[in-house]
């Protein structure tokens, strides 16, 4: 089985590296656009309020892409700011891992599955490829944010791992989410590098788990249907504030670092790993018992 896993992953890497790289580039472009919009908003805001200079830092650029939306309560009658940047990046991440001719029953799936010699090894390689693609895209997003921060002249906090990264006090307002002033990302304490790393890991895991659910659904349903269902799953937290909605954990605006009643990294880790396990088991069960009867393209 492990031999099949390694072979299939190697085949996947050779066959899909180029198209996957292009899709990852698209994710990075969307992330860059979100950072640019934040800069533009910050400059405009500073122009209006001359006393307040735009002190954007690295965390602000990460928030521009990955903040998502805070807890929205329609009963308060506030204007809603849909997190378009976050949604675009999420959709792109789904699209990075959706087209996979090596696993498409109407494409190369019969050939690759038979040649791999193991259904389970083949499926695990598929999951590993999804995780690798998500990781690459996520590293791309973080690199883009760091590059924008460096270009903006964001200061690197001194003091090692405990050094605080903070959101500019106007960033939540510009990005349209509520933040509690007492939360670390906005308070004097800031988020330490370890906190940022923990949150980024959870965010990557959350997006990866959604992509894995999509891959499992593709084993049962046509790709457009699987994509639509997964997109609904990813965007469900925009309507309901609940820890079991895995998309929440890909939003900085819902983390305990930004709002007082937010989700902690341990909660995010538990929920996302549960989703990963469920998706992998479901996909493995489907792969094991399914007849591969393709159709002519």
């Amino acid at each position: 089985m492990w031999q099949a896993f390694v072979r299939t992953l190697r085949c996947e890497g050779r066959a899909q590296a180029r198209p996957a790289a292009l899709r990852v580039l698209a994710v990075c472009l969307f992330a860059s656009l979100a950072c640019f919009l934040l800069c533009a908003q910050a400059v405009v805001h500073s122009g209006i309020d001359g006393a307040q200079s735009a002190r954007l830092g690295f965390l602000d650029f990460l928030a521009a892409v990955l903040a998502g939306e805070g807890d929205y309560d329609p009963s308060l009658g506030e204007r809603r700011a849909v997190p378009v940047g976050w949604l675009c990046v999420g959709v792109c991440m789904l699209l990075v891992t959706l087209p996979d001719p090596l696993h498409d029953p109407r494409h190369m799936q019969p050939l690759t599955m038979v040649l791999s010699g193991s259904r389970v090894g083949w499926w695990l390689a598929s999951c590993a490829w999804v995780a690798l693609c998500c990781l690459t895209a996520f590293i791309g997003i973080v690199a883009v944010c760091i590059a924008w921060g460096a270009c903006w002249g964001a200061a690197v906090p001194s003091g090692g791992a405990s050094a605080g990264l903070r959101l500019w006090e106007k960033t939540p307002e510009l990005l349209g989410f509520d933040a509690s002033a007492a939360a670390p990302a906005l308070s004097g304490r800031g988020m330490g590098w370890r906190d940022v790393l923990a949150w980024l890991s959870c965010s990557w895991l959350a997006l990866t788990s959604v992509c894995l659910v999509q891959r499992a659904l593709v084993a049962m349903l046509p790709a457009p249907v699987a994509f639509s269902l997964t997109l609904a799953m990813l965007s469900a937290p925009l309507f309901v504030f609940h820890p079991w909605l895995v998309g929440s954990h890909a939003m900085l605006a819902r983390s305990t670092f930004v709002i007082n009643n937010g989700f902690s990294p341990s909660c995010a880790l538990g929920v996302t790993l549960a989703h990963v396990a469920a998706a992998m088991c479901l996909g493995a069960a489907m792969t094991l018992r399914r007849d591969v009867v393709g159709q002519r393209r």
Partner: peptide, 23 residues
């Protein structure tokens, strides 16, 4: 089976090279 199906963006040789990784 049911006609050939390869990756359109790759060359014929690269398609075979990718499949050769499974052998």
């Amino acid at each position: 089976l049911e006609g050939p199906a390869f990756i359109g963006s790759l060359s014929g040789r690269d398609n075979l090279r990718a499949l050769a990784d499974l052998r």
